[in-house]
Design a protein around this nucleic acid. Structure first.
Lengths: 342, 342
DNA sequence: TTTGATTTCGGAAACGTTTCCTATTTCATT
DNA sequence: AATGAAATAGGAAACGTTTCCGAAATCAAA
């Protein structure tokens, strides 16, 4: 480690008695080199421990074999899964990924795109959270390809980027399932700002008419909201026989609280969440949920980016939405319902 | 994006009517340039949208401003937290981090270290899981500085790397706490291979004598093991009044099962885990746990690596162990114990 | 003014590769 | 043998910077 006098391609050439061009051919196994000399060169390389300088290579071939992945916060929810998927996919194609957390901060999200040139990467995958107004504009004038992992708002046609996300069908899936297993008094537990979204509309639309007492709008998407929702429903004269929770955290809160209250799940009340968080399998009962396909979304976003890099042309931009998938677990299995109640 | 004829430092120079050396001085704000010309150059740069080529810079100055972070699997346990901490710290010093998952595979762990030169980084932070025998050897012959985040075995003095980890005191902390709040029948719930470790020895050593019926060795470190442990203890003639769980997953399993069995926590049984997983705050009751200081460990490991890069010398290697910290929550608060029992 | 020190600047040489172009060798075909 | 095509090789230019070194310009002091 004490400045070992960097060994270059020239050292190899000299020692092997060939030109540097030939050494280059050997390490890139390009053609125009005889198997014999190639073997000899490789041998020498092994001996003196040569490894081509990646900066020089990048400078020459004008690519870095790196892509950037910008996410709000690697510590949250499905993001580790996404980061993992991107890394695996990139690796398969010989790319490395540099990790960036934007903290879901609008300024950071813009900055990343604007300063992408400073990143020593060939392209960018961004999962926005803040969706700053000028994001699209910034992306469009970007000098490098970008791919968007979109779990937020519907994005316009004008984006010059591949966009992959989720078909807004999570709520519909939950409701169809709950209806199919014969529940009739289905409640909704969510968060107010969520009212405008598919997850809530699916609830309204699946029902002939909605009983307002069965709709609980909490403050956020947290465990605590779930606990409070459970208390609220428990206090009703006529309890629901199923609860559609806006996400898994809320669902877990509900399940936990109901267990304390001796409400049986799924016999008395079925519960279904959304996200397919790993912790849904670790509660008791395990909670049915809708997978939002993080790894598939991330994988495709990566593949589209790499394809664009490979083909070097800014042709048609892709718009892909994965279908969410319902995973049925104990909390909503179809049971012969017992009329007795605590 | 359609091959915009890369604008180079020379274009800037020409347009500003100066030499390229001067432009270089302007963008690196080195001295030997008058404020006036500097301003003019910056102006031009802004106009024509120039951004220096990072590959060329790296080639010239012989550093990439990147470090690699190799972890077993970004999706597991405290690793997102570690990745986050490394990234934040690196960013503060102007470094970016490239993420690598080793899958806890011995061969991968070795390969990363061996092929570090191919990574376009200035140094490596590795969190080993497999600890292959030749890892130290490989690190010692590495041409780049490496820093180790060590949550595994005790590492020898011979490693030419900074090593930061955790002082093996988690078990002791738990036991002291449990004894202090007056528990007398303290049980242990863990995994068999764990028997050799501090976490178990601390249990034995804190007790005048151990009641073998209060020791439950499960199969693994999972939620399920926790559930089974709870069942086991519940079946005892004489239940423990506290349980020291080898980690949070097990603790959560215990708490969940006990709630079903109407065992009161902490009144009947106190429960404490280890790891300080975020989910300990989302159970009911919230679970006391020992923080294993992931973010501090990661931050220091990063800082040591960057310092070594800065100082360019392979002097003394650091060995640092953080003290784990007990976080007391509802599951083990000191209560006036009620003699009545369900 | 002259002098000398200091600041400001530009030319050119690196950094370590890949690749173009040309030269040589090898080989198959006549 | 003679010819031409194909395979193999090397020299040198280029990629876009930083930095060394010397030249020119500026400035302060005499």
């Amino acid at each position: 480690m004490v400045n070992p006098k960097k060994v270059t391609i020239e050292d190899v050439a000299k020692k092997a008695g060939v030109g540097i061009a030939t050494v280059s051919r050997a390490i890139n196994n390009s053609k125009g080199i005889s198997p014999a000399t190639k073997a000899r060169i490789l041998q020498v390389i092994e001996e003196i421990g040569f490894s081509p300088d990646t900066s020089a290579q990048s400078l020459k071939v004008r690519q870095t074999n790196q892509i950037a992945l910008a996410v709000p916060d690697i510590r949250n929810a499905i993001i580790p899964e996404i980061a993992w998927s991107v890394e695996q996919t990139a690796k398969q194609h010989g790319y490395r990924v540099v990790q960036i957390n934007t903290a879901g901060n609008a300024r950071n999200e813009l900055e990343i795109v604007r300063d992408i040139k400073k990143l020593h990467v060939d392209g960018l995958i961004i999962m926005p959270l803040a969706y700053p107004k000028t994001l699209g504009e910034q992306i469009n004038k970007s000098s490098l390809p970008v791919s968007i992992i979109n779990y937020g708002k519907q994005l316009g046609e004008e984006y010059k980027a591949d966009i992959v996300g989720l078909a807004r069908q999570e709520g519909r899936l939950v409701m169809e399932h709950l209806l199919k297993i014969g529940r009739t008094r289905i409640a909704y537990a969510g968060a107010p700002k969520d009212k405008i979204e598919e997850r809530y509309w699916a609830y309204e639309q699946s029902l002939k008419q909605v009983d307002p007492s069965l709709v609980y709008f909490g403050e956020d998407f947290s465990f605590e909201t779930g606990v409070r929702a459970a208390d609220y429903f428990y206090g009703l004269k006529h309890m629901p026989d199923a609860i559609y929770a806006v996400n898994d955290m809320v669902a877990i809160g509900i399940v936990n609280r109901f267990k304390e209250l001796h409400v049986r799940i799924p016999e008395d009340v079925a519960v279904v969440g959304i996200d397919n968080n790993a912790w849904t399998t670790v509660t008791n009962p395990q909670i049915s949920s809708v997978s939002i396909m993080g790894d598939e979304v991330a994988r495709l976003a990566t593949e589209l980016l790499l394809k664009r890099l490979r083909e070097q042309k800014s042709g048609q931009y892709e718009r892909v939405q994965f279908e969410p998938r319902l995973i049925v677990r104990e909390s909503s299995i179809s049971v012969i319902r017992n009329a007795t109640t605590d």
